[in-house]
Amino acid sequence: MGDTTVSSLEGRQATPRPAAEDRTGNTLLRRMRTPRRPRLWFEVLLIAVSYWTYSLIRNAVPEQRHEALRNADWIWRTEHHLGAAVEESVNHAVNQVGWLIIGMNYYYATLHFVVTLSVLVWLYRCHPGRYAAARLVLFATTVVALVGYYFFPLAPPRLMTGGTFVDTVMVHQTWGSMASGDLKHMSNQYAAMPSMHIGWALWCGLTVFALARAPWARILGILYPVATLVVIVATANHFWLDAVGGLLCLAFGFLVARLWYGALPYALPQWVPGTRGTPVLPVKT
Results as ranks from 00 to 15, higher is better:
Val226Lys: 08
His172Trp: 12
Ala20Lys: 12
Leu69Cys: 04
Ala48Leu: 11
Gly253Lys: 06
Thr24Cys: 10
Ile57Val: 15
Cys204His: 04
Val49Ser: 12
Ile102Cys: 08
Gly253Met: 05
Gly274Pro: 03
Thr141Gly: 09
Tyr266Glu: 13
Leu250Pro: 05
Trp200Tyr: 15
Val119Arg: 03
Asn105Lys: 03
Phe252Asp: 01
Phe252Ala: 06
Gly162Ala: 07
Leu46Val: 12
Phe139Pro: 04
Arg58Lys: 14
Met160Arg: 09
Arg31Gln: 13
Phe151Ser: 07
Ile102Tyr: 06
Ala257Arg: 01
Val231Leu: 05
Trp74Met: 12
Val144Asp: 09
Met160Leu: 06
Ala236Tyr: 00
Phe239Ile: 04
Ser55Asp: 12
Ala145Glu: 11
Val144Leu: 14
Leu146Cys: 04
Leu46Asn: 10
Val272Asp: 00
Ala140Thr: 05
Phe252Trp: 15
Trp260Ala: 06
Val208Lys: 00
Arg213Pro: 03
Ala48Asn: 04
Leu117Asp: 07
Gly11Tyr: 13
Phe254Lys: 04
Pro269Glu: 01
Gly277Leu: 05
Thr285His: 12
Pro279Trp: 05
Phe152Ile: 09
Arg213Cys: 07
Asn91Gln: 07
Leu259Met: 10
Leu255Gly: 11
Gly162Val: 02
Arg125Tyr: 10
Leu120Pro: 00
Ala179Glu: 11
Val231Asn: 05
Ser180Pro: 06
Asp22Ala: 14
Val97Arg: 08
Tyr190Phe: 13
Ile198Met: 15
Ala214Glu: 12
Thr164His: 15
Arg70Lys: 14
Arg12Trp: 13
Met196Ser: 08
Leu250Gly: 06
Arg158Leu: 11
Thr207Ser: 03
Trp200Asp: 10
Asn71Met: 06
Asn91Ile: 05
Leu248Arg: 07
Ala267Glu: 11
Thr53Tyr: 10
Ile75Pro: 02
Trp41Gln: 06
Arg33Ser: 08
Gly253Glu: 02
Gly221Ser: 02
Thr228Gly: 00
Val147Gly: 14
Arg70Thr: 15
Ala72Ile: 11
Leu211Trp: 06
Gly262Glu: 03
Gly176Met: 04
Phe139Val: 14
His66Cys: 03
Leu154Trp: 04
His185Gln: 11
Leu220Arg: 00
Gly277Ala: 02
His92Tyr: 05
Asp73Gly: 08
Thr141His: 06
Trp271Asp: 13
Arg17Ala: 15
Val86Met: 07
His238Ser: 04
Gly176Phe: 05
His92Ile: 08
Ala192Glu: 05
Glu87Gly: 07
Met170Lys: 13
Leu117Val: 10
Pro16Gly: 02
Leu264Cys: 04
Val169His: 05
Gln96Lys: 15
Thr275Asp: 14
Phe239Tyr: 11
Ala214Asp: 15
Asn105Val: 04
His185Glu: 11
Thr142Ala: 14
Val6Ser: 10
Leu56Ser: 13
Trp216His: 09
Leu111Arg: 08
Pro153Tyr: 03
Pro194Gln: 03
Trp216Met: 09
Thr4Glu: 15
Ala192Gly: 07
Trp122Ile: 01
Gly162Phe: 04
Glu67Trp: 02
Arg258Thr: 13
Val233Tyr: 00
Ala236Met: 02
Asp242Ser: 01
Val61His: 01
Ala236Gln: 06
Val94Thr: 09
Gly129Thr: 06
Ala14His: 08
Gly163Cys: 01
Val86Tyr: 10
Leu136Gly: 03
Trp99Glu: 10
Ala68Pro: 01
Leu28Ser: 14
His112Tyr: 14
Thr164Ile: 05
Val121Met: 03
